[in-house]
Computed example of a mutant assay.
Amino acid sequence: MRILCWHVHAAWMTSFVQGAHEYYVPVLPDRGADGKGRAQTYEWPDTVTELGPEQLRDAEFDAVVLQRPHELELFARWTGRAPGRRGVPAVYVEHNTPRGDVDDWQHWLAARTDIPIVHVTEYNRMIWDNGIAPTVVIEHGVPDYGYHYQGYLDSLVAAINEPVRRRRVAGLDLLERIATQVPVSVYGMGTDQLLSRITDGLDEVGDFSQDYLHERMVEHFGYLHPYRWTSNGLALIEAMTLGLPVLAIGATAAYETVPAAAGLVSASPDRLADMAARWRMEPEEPRERGRAAREHALRHFGLPRFLTEWDALLKEVCA
């Protein structure tokens, strides 16, 4: 099957392109948001091909996977075809939780029946007003990165991209509160901005590639997921596959993602900090919980399940 999909979220896309299809990703000279092309810091298979807008008009696709509202217009303009029943079979992946007032949480495809909305969590499907649009849930899938937990650093680790811009969404204020009681390291794109904002209680900050991020994460005794309003963090699931125990703010899909054996999910930052303090004194407990986290992640978020569910959906849409 020939599938067109914009490179929006590198980690999600890395899993998606592992399937048995041909994948085409739009590319622009500046590799901006609408034309990133192939990933530069992730390993993608040779089945992923870059195409510029002028090449897209003559290319043939069996399906298009949309991820942002403006991609419907972009696809029509660049290919000369419409996404959906009157053109190229399409699905829309909703990566995000809704914003604004709860009464305004109607999805922009809610009035259409020809483009299924693919939610990445059951929470997302429940919280969005999907109207008459068909919906399906395909939860994240990640490769098995292997068990690498070490836990010798006396600090938690959190992975947050652009934490200052996404302050309340990412739970940066909650992280700050926990960091006054337990050291926390923060990694991700744009974390250098933290240096001018908060220093007390934070162990270190920095921007790293995925491979190096994984190498650093496993040195810490636990993973902190402080997000208030996110669908489900791929970094959280990756941390679990690596064997890290989890402390997560009890919001959105966290309760379904992290079982009790793998750590603690709570709406109270203080309870999370107390658990972290206990783990610092009893290092065997986080190690055991990390093994449980890995087992759960492989069972529920394994790549084979993810790809099988996507294959079934694409086959149905293209039938």
Results as ranks from 00 to 15, higher is better:
L247E: 01
G52K: 15
Y187V: 13
W44P: 01
A63H: 04
P134M: 01
G35M: 07
E54K: 15
P183E: 06
G263D: 06
E139R: 05
L109P: 02
N232L: 13
G290P: 04
A253D: 03
V136E: 06
T113K: 14
D114T: 07
D207V: 12
A235Y: 00
V317G: 01
W105C: 06
G243Q: 00
Y42S: 08
F208H: 10
L194C: 07
L313V: 15
E50F: 05
A251M: 10
L264V: 12
I115N: 08
Y152D: 15
A59G: 07
M275D: 08
L224A: 04
D30C: 12
E285L: 15
P69E: 10
V164T: 02
N130T: 07
T113F: 13
Q193N: 07
E309C: 07
H296M: 15
A253M: 08
V246M: 11
R81D: 03
S185F: 13
Y145D: 08
A267E: 14
E285T: 11
A253E: 02
V120P: 09
M217L: 10
A254W: 14
E94P: 07
A319G: 06
V258R: 06
A319C: 13
T14V: 08
A159P: 01
S231F: 12
R280H: 12
E139C: 13
R280T: 07
I178A: 07
A170V: 12
V246Y: 00
H225S: 09
S268L: 12
G206I: 10
E309H: 09
L314K: 14
D101H: 05
V102A: 00
S231D: 05
V182S: 10
L313M: 11
L272P: 01
A59F: 04
Q40P: 11
G206Y: 13
I138M: 03
P29F: 13
A260Y: 10
T47Y: 06
V137C: 00
E60D: 15
A170Y: 14
Q67K: 00
M1K: 04
E71H: 14
V64W: 10
R168N: 09
E122F: 09
D103N: 13
E219D: 05
F208N: 06
L153T: 11
W229S: 05
K315C: 10
A76N: 10
Q55P: 11
G131V: 03
Q150M: 01
P29W: 04
L56S: 07
L242M: 08
N232K: 11
A76F: 12
I160C: 00
M281F: 14
I160L: 04
P163H: 09
V184L: 09
L303R: 13
Y255A: 06
P269A: 12
G263W: 09
V27G: 03
A254D: 02
S209T: 15
A63D: 06
P269E: 02
E309Q: 14
H70V: 10
R305F: 01
L224W: 00
R291F: 15
T97M: 14
W310P: 02
E219N: 08
V64R: 03
Q106S: 04
V218I: 03
Y24P: 01
F221L: 01
I160T: 04
